[in-house]
């Protein structure tokens, strides 16, 4: 039942090439997925600002348009306001836990160095071991890096909190049951005989196309993320044949083969959204001109727009909060490893110190 624990071991150069190649791949995937997500946010923003699709569904002028109802149910189903409030409340504690681990780690380095300096002052050149300050340089640099990361995280927390404060009122309204939601939306006399007009059908068709583009996007994102490949053999072969690894060439070549088609499909997806959104904006102008514009109608439209964008903000805020929670938990693990490194070296230095002290006292 022998399994060779060294089976996966590779030369150093291959190991480094693999980690660079992996981060190259990670960057490409993030860029592709990021551009798709950005396009979805843009699309949602434009539609919300045009009060679409709600304006097309809002025939009676006093009931809750279907798309707003669906958005309300979606938010409630994902836990509504309470779920994000709870995550927001947890952020400061997660931050504090990370700070404490970091501060504690750096403190034990400082304390040991202080003692080392005191003894060096007392025994001067007889205290002939390397000063702790020199030994701890790289650990302190690493600690400094963690501090920067935590400061950036604090800014991110602030962004999320502000986003939450801006939208929580509307999100709360969206979370209300249908009757209360309906009562909260100002009513306006029904949209005249818009139902039959051609521009309403054109707009509806355009919105269906946008939905299809978004659905394709989700499939595309899944496929992009599912791509896996291993460069080990290629790097090993290169090392054997040429004695060196041209990581960049090999990785870029592989990434082109694996992701070339996806990159094109992403660009095509973004282009078609751009075209359709432009058409929607033109049709909407025609639609808006047809609709009667009086105070009640525009007041109602304002609230419907806010409700639609409250849904989009809810999705964004909860994804930010999930990202933040994961960030802090991942960082805690990394900081605990850092803490172990600090306590290990300090333990070793203390043991060494005691021995040196004994020798000096004897001599």
């Amino acid at each position: 039942k022998f399994s060779d624990i060294f089976e996966k071991m590779v030369p150093m150069l291959v190991q480094q090439s693999l980690s660079i190649s992996n981060s190259r791949k990670g960057e490409l995937v993030n860029r592709l997925v990021g551009s798709l997500r950005e396009a979805t946010n843009l699309c949602n923003g434009v539609l919300a600002s045009l009060n679409l699709p709600a304006a097309l569904e809002d025939l009676s002028g006093d009931s809750v348009p279907q798309s707003i109802l669906e958005k309300s149910r979606a938010v409630i189903q994902q836990g509504g306001l309470n779920s994000i409030e709870q995550l927001i409340k947890d952020l400061p504690e997660l931050l504090l836990r990370n700070r404490e681990i970091l501060d504690e780690s750096l403190k034990i380095l400082n304390d040991e160095e202080t003692t080392d300096n005191e003894l060096r002052a007392k025994f001067s050149q007889r205290w002939n071991r390397t000063p702790s300050g020199d030994l701890y340089k790289s650990l302190r640099a690493e600690g400094g890096n963690f501090r920067n990361i935590l400061d950036k995280a604090v800014n991110a927390d602030q962004v999320v909190k502000e986003r939450y404060n801006t939208h929580c009122e509307m999100i709360a309204l969206l979370c209300k049951p249908e009757d209360q939601l309906c009562a909260a939306i100002p009513s306006a006399n029904p949209a005249k005989t818009l139902q039959g007009s051609e521009v309403v059908n054109v707009l509806k068709a355009q919105l269906v196309q946008l939905d299809e583009i978004k659905r394709d996007r989700e499939v595309l994102e899944g496929e992009i993320k599912a791509v896996t490949f291993d460069m080990t053999t290629k790097f090993l072969t290169a090392l054997v044949q040429d004695g060196a690894i041209n990581e960049e060439a090999l990785s870029t070549g592989e990434l082109d083969t694996r992701y070339g088609a996806y990159t094109q499909r992403v660009q095509q997806n973004l282009r078609s959204q751009e075209e359709i959104l432009a058409q929607v904006q033109t049709s909407h102008q025609e639609f808006a001109a047809l609709k009667q514009s009086n105070a009640e109608a525009s007041h109602r439209e304002e609230v419907l727009k806010k409700l639609a964008s409250a849904h989009d903000s809810y999705i964004e805020i909860s994804s930010n909060l999930k990202e933040g929670t994961k960030f802090y938990n991942d960082l805690t693990e990394i900081l605990l490893k850092f803490q172990n490194k600090c306590s290990d070296i300090v333990f070793a230095r203390k043991t060494e110190r005691e021995e040196l002290l004994k020798d000096l006292q004897q001599s």
């Binding site: 981060s23 990361i149 950036k152 995280a153 991110a156 999320v160 933040g324 960030f327 960082l331």
Partner: peptide, 16 residues
């Protein structure tokens, strides 16, 4: 993404 990436921190510095 909003939060800093921890990717390169997760890679244990083999050289250390």
């Amino acid at each position: 993404s909003l939060y800093p990436s921890l990717e390169d921190l997760k890679v244990d510095k083999v050289m250390r």
